[in-house]
Design a protein around this nucleic acid. Structure first.
Lengths: 262, 262
DNA sequence: TGAATAGTGTCTGTGAGACAATATTAT
DNA sequence: ATAATATTGTCTCACAGACACTATTCA
């Protein structure tokens, strides 16, 4: 029929088939310090996720992940960076493709396939976040395979539950827009798994941090207490001691460390 | 503007924006036993990947991964299963979403975003494969961050090289169609990483196997020799001894094991 | 008998878990 | 002085690496 590839391409009808839309959604995590019980105690750290309030249909006034449509002249990675920059003014941060979600009914408007990304930041570097965006602290309770999330704010609480079935999550009940309950569950899971064998934690930390703070972040992501000496042994070769210290609590001051990038 | 979500949806123009096409591509791996040097020796196992020859433009007569366009009424998972069934007659096999590739020029026809899947099978269960499909044994040489692949067949050799940069691969040189060099590199990497902390190996094995055979598969995927006693200790609790044995080599017969599914 | 794989025993060093002990601060 | 965290020391146990040794088959 066609002799050359050039000839074929010229005659090709791009619009022969109907196509889904493609979006990117981004799960932006950071660690926020909650309130301390008293002046002596350390403030309790929690994982936080950035949500935006939808101001249009569908799901008007519901909260969802920052996201947007993929443009024809950008890759998914580029789209993710663009969204992040637009909605949160964040640049040069840890960004990783998570998973592509394609359920038929995930968007009531039309067929939308969405590639989700995870971003990790030290939230204190980006105090101002887009008008409609807000940090929610994550409280997660796991019983058997039921993951109960409570995302909370100074103003609001959002609840959702997902069930883990093998490697997948299934929605049980959600107050978020779209299937973003699943996306968050999936994302947290990914981060948890990668914690041990990568250096992603440091994306959540400021330049200088104490080992206590670092350990708290580990504990918050893994959802369990770690033993101090064991943690220090393991982390020792990823980290360099500085000559700075953090004083001020009613207890022994703590040496500040930096990430050791080999 | 709109009072209710229903009202909004009714007026929504789905075709306001131009959209990329979406495809799925599948990296089907299996382990094939090569030739033995002599009757006494065990046959050398290799990872194999299933390729199909393109019979139309673009990339006419080039080899590529089995794949196809996503239909409007199916999820990506379903599309992957459909492709697998069509092209290879395979059903109920291990299938996992790998990554979504979105480079602007990956398909010369038009903008195509492709979600890649990995499938693992015991190739002996599926002797007949679609007409245009063929198994290629994978030879991989890694030097620093340069991964040199040679895929070989009874008839043909396909060569490609990719560079690993952080978590990503970059094409250096490829005889395959599209960006399927990257997809294969990415897939092999994923399998290698998951080998230790999952049970995916057993998807590559027949129901009954010897520990020697299992060890060979590990060695082939990891690209290094393992010590027998250590391997047996680690694998012991994932496996049950049967009362069958495998005789026939000029050496002590080997007990056949089964996967222990808890 | 000999080449080849199957399978076991054991020594050693590393590293995680557990817990105890010491150090230092602000009030 | 006290409550709280910071930091180090050390004992034990599990386990991986290394290597040696035994077992069994079939041309």
């Amino acid at each position: 029929m066609f002799k050359t590839e050039a000839e074929f391409l010229k005659a090709y009808n791009k619009n022969e088939f109907d196509r889904p839309s493609i979006t990117v959604d981004i799960v932006v995590f950071s660690v926020s310090s909650g309130e301390a019980e008293n002046w002596r105690k350390l403030s309790q750290k929690k994982m936080s996720v950035l949500l935006v309030k939808r101001d249009t249909f569908p799901f008007k006034n519901k909260w969802c992940l920052p996201g947007g449509f993929l443009k024809m002249d950008e890759t998914l990675d580029e789209a993710a960076k663009r969204v992040l920059l637009n909605e949160t003014n964040m640049k040069n941060i840890y960004l990783e493709q998570l998973y592509t979600f394609s359920d038929l009914k995930r968007d009531p408007r039309m067929r939308v396939v969405s590639t989700a990304y995870v971003a990790l930041i030290d939230k204190n570097k980006y105090e101002e976040v887009a008008k409609a965006a807000s940090w929610y602290k994550i409280n997660l309770n796991i019983e058997n395979n039921l993951y109960s999330f409570v995302l909370e704010n100074e103003k609001e609480k959002l609840v959702f539950k997902v069930k883990k079935e093998g490697d997948h999550f299934v929605s049980v009940d959600s107050e978020l827009a779209f299937d973003h309950d699943l996306v968050i569950a999936y994302a947290l899971n990914r981060i948890k798994n990668k914690l041990e064998y990568t250096n992603i934690v440091f994306s959540l930390m400021p330049e200088y941090f104490t080992l206590g703070e670092l350990q708290q972040v580990y504990e918050v992501i893994l959802g369990k207490k770690l033993l101090d000496p064991a943690f220090r042994r393991v982390i020792a070769n990823k980290v360099v001691k500085t000559d700075k210290v953090k004083k001020g609590g009613g207890h022994r001051p703590s040496v500040l460390y930096k990430f050791k990038d080999d």
